[in-house]
Design a binder for these strands. Structure first.
Lengths: 112, 112
DNA sequence: AATTGGAGCAACCAATGGTTGCGCATGATG
DNA sequence: CATCATGCGCAACCATTGGTTGCTCCAATT
C-alpha cells in the first residue's frame, strides 16, 4: 500500500513529449516554447500546454525577459521526481525478488 | 538523444490506477477484473480496460479458468519496465550532477 | 431447470493532447 | 518615429483515452 508517490509529479513525467522537453531543457540549460517546439514534433502551442503542466507541478520555472518567456528545469523538484521513480522501481524490484525467493523455496520443498 | 525507452511500456505504468493494479497483482499473486475492482476506486469495466492495456504491452498475462479470467504479472516484462525507469532516472541524475559540477567550477573560477 | 455471478459489448461523457487561426504586444528596422 | 516581424496567449475545434451505466451472454451452482 502507501503510495508515497505524488501522482501529479509522476504523470507529469509520464508523457514522452514532456520527458523529451525536460531532456532538452537540461542539456540546453533552458528554452522557450518556440525554441523547444523547433526541436520537437509538435507545435508551439502544444509545447506551451506541456510547459504549463510542468510549471504547475514545479518541474520548471519561468523568467520573463523582454517578450520572451524563458523556462528552465527546477533541479530540486526534478531530483524529487527521480527519487520517486526509483522508489517505485525499488518496491517492485523487491516484490519480484520476494516472489522469486518463495518460488525457489517451494521448489526446494517439493524436491525434498 | 536516442530514447532507449519504450514509450508504450512507460505510459502503461504511467497511469496511477495501473500502477496500483500491478501492485495488487504482485502482492496477491494474481486477480480478475472483478476482484481488482473491489479494491480500487473504479468500476470493473474500467479495470478491464486497464488490464487490456497492460496485456497489450505484455506486463500481464491471462489464463482463462472456467468463467473467470485470471490475470498475473509477467515478471520478465515488469523487470524490463523497472530497468527503463531507473535508466531514465539515472540519465537525468547524471545530467543534474554534471550541471552541479559545472556550476561549482564556475563559482571556483569567480572566487579565484 | 432456474438462478446467480463473472465477463464482454456498446453507448455515452469528461478530460487531455493535438491542431489551426487569430490578436496582441514588444523588440528590431527603415 | 513608424513600421515590420516575432514571440506569446487565447479560442475553437478534433481525436484519443479513462471513466461511467446498462445490457447480454455464458458457465457454475443449487
Amino acid at each position: 500500500m502507501s503510495f508515497t508517490i505524488d501522482d501529479e509529479l509522476w504523470s507529469a513525467v509520464g508523457d514522452p513529449i514532456r520527458r523529451r522537453m525536460l531532456d532538452l531543457l537540461l542539456t540546453d540549460g533552458g528554452g522557450t516554447s518556440t525554441t523547444l517546439s523547433a526541436r520537437l514534433p509538435v507545435t508551439r502551442q502544444a509545447v506551451a500546454k506541456h510547459l504549463a503542466v510542468l510549471d504547475r507541478v514545479g518541474l520548471v520555472h519561468v523568467t520573463p525577459s523582454g517578450r520572451e518567456r524563458l523556462y528552465a528545469v527546477d533541479e530540486a523538484q526534478l531530483a524529487r521526481a527521480i527519487a520517486q521513480l526509483s522508489s517505485v522501481g525499488a518496491t517492485w524490484d523487491a516484490r519480484l525478488r520476494r516472489i522469486k525467493r518463495i518460488a525457489e523455496a517451494i521448489q526446494r520443498n517439493q524436491e525434498s
